[in-house]
């Protein structure tokens, strides 16, 4: 099953992920103004929340990874040599 980890130090409490997720996976924790994961089971790993989060505060584990043929293999190769 998908596991979602929120980096509470990074989260700025903007609630963008709550609004963006179509499956109500997140909810705002009003007490400490951070997002919290409440419905992990309905996460379909679309990762639109990753695109919208200004703090890159979430991590999805054990998800499928879509093919990314748009990335140039030569660029990938060069990056791998540097990193």
């Amino acid at each position: 099953m998908v596991e979602i980890i929120i980096d509470e130090d990074a989260c700025v409490g903007c609630a963008s992920c709550v609004e963006d997720c179509p499956n109500d996976v997140y909810e705002m924790d009003e007490a400490n103004n951070k997002t919290k994961v409440v419905n992990e089971v309905d996460c379909m790993a679309c990762l639109s929340c990753h695109e919208i989060c200004p703090a890159q505060a979430m991590e999805h584990r054990d998800i499928h990874v879509a093919k990314r043929l748009y990335i140039d293999r030569k660029v990938n190769y060069a990056l791998k040599r540097i990193i």
Binding site: P22, M44, A45, C46, L47, S48, C49, H50, E51, I63, H64, V65, A66
Partner: peptide, 10 residues
């Protein structure tokens, strides 16, 4: 289309 994302679309 219900929803789009970089890793999947519903």
């Amino acid at each position: 289309i219900d929803h789009v994302g970089p890793n999947a679309c519903l």
